[in-house]
Design a binder for these strands. Structure first.
Lengths: 197, 197
DNA sequence: GGTGTTGGTCAACGCTTGTTGGCAACCGTA
DNA sequence: TACGGTTGCCAACAAGCGTTGACCAACACC
């Protein structure tokens, strides 16, 4: 019969002995993709960080593309803006984004790769379409203007991430989260709710 | 004596027979760097585009780094804001940037490489410091706030470039230059001239 | 016409990359 | 104890990379 090296758990999930290795690979991959971008983040370097053989990466994730897809499964966890005071949506969004970027290097990884790689750019388009657009729809008055207004917000928020976390411009790093919310909040607020100029 | 294959011209410059080749290499390099980023833009591909041998690139530019440095010698040609009506500086800057990006793929190249490459990021820091900061100094009231305010402008403008020219978000591409100036102009204006929030 | 510089091609170098297949150790089951 | 699936390492592959040096064809000067 089939040898079973996995144990059923209380919730019905199975835990295999290799899960720790898988997790180590994913963590190392996120680090490397965030720090180096897609091309310079080599499978060999990732494997070295995870203290395993490069061939294990292939066995568990199929290919480098597969590894990247598994490593950056991005959920922005955007708040429900219908539950937020209407003139606070700008500050709320900026604050939420800042918290996300500060704690989560997957975002830096996906932005870096998006700037290098065609597949990465398409992934960012997907995130925009599936996660930011619906939230913008909650607060925009005119449904027809939703994509344009959401794109303006994306430009401002991704521009902040680019200068602060990728290019690392010193003045962009010097600003505190509170200052950034105070400066960018009204901008995003205007892009989402102000009448067309 | 030294053989002379170059001709003096009316303005005192000399024109060598190889200048056409040099120019072809630089043009191809700009294309490739802009389209593919630093790593994927290979010397071999650039040489193929320029219809010469890869070794010529090495002879004329020393190395791949040297080629990149020569290919993207970036001058933003920012306008003198002291000659612009004070409440027009935002719109002026946004319009100028848009014109630059639309016609000039060097900017896409340097942004893509800045997102991938440590040296590229430092180059962008240099551009910010040497070209954007002085212009911001022309219009900011408080000299101490100049770096922060310039960084905010950079975030907004580079974010626009990122979403429109690198990630190519469809809604960001759909907006006309006029609409973008109308939306982003007031933002940049506020970052530069409004009192601290 | 000989000479030395220039513009250019060609073949190769050493290296790194993603990827593959074989092989040894492990471990629960029978 | 024997079995067979799982985990892991090792060595190698083909391809592509930046880079180098030898070599040849023009050409300008003495």
């Amino acid at each position: 019969m089939l040898a079973n090296t996995s144990w059923p758990t209380l919730v019905g999930m199975t835990v295999r002995r290799s899960d720790a290795t898988r997790a180590a690979i994913l963590a190392a991959a996120r680090d490397r993709f965030a720090a180096d971008g897609y091309d310079r983040a080599t499978i060999r370097a990732i494997a070295k960080d995870a203290r395993i053989d490069p061939s294990m990466v292939m066995r568990y994730f199929g290919s480098k593309d597969g590894l990247f897809a598994a490593a950056v499964a991005l959920d922005l966890r955007l708040p429900d803006l219908t539950r937020v005071s209407r003139d606070e949506v700008g500050r709320t969004l900026v604050g939420h984004f800042l918290g996300l970027w500060e704690e989560n290097e997957e975002l830096t990884a996906v932005l870096r790769v998006g700037a290098t790689n065609e597949a990465g750019a398409e992934r960012m388009q997907g995130i925009f379409r599936d996660q930011l657009l619906p939230v913008a729809r909650q607060v925009c008055p005119d449904p027809e203007q939703v994509p344009a207004r959401a794109a303006l917000c994306a430009a401002q928020l991704l521009g902040l991430a680019l200068t602060r976390y990728v290019l690392r411009l010193p003045p962009a790093r010097a600003l505190t989260p509170e200052e950034l919310v105070a400066w960018l909040g009204p901008t995003v607020q205007r892009y989402l709710t102000a009448p067309s100029p």
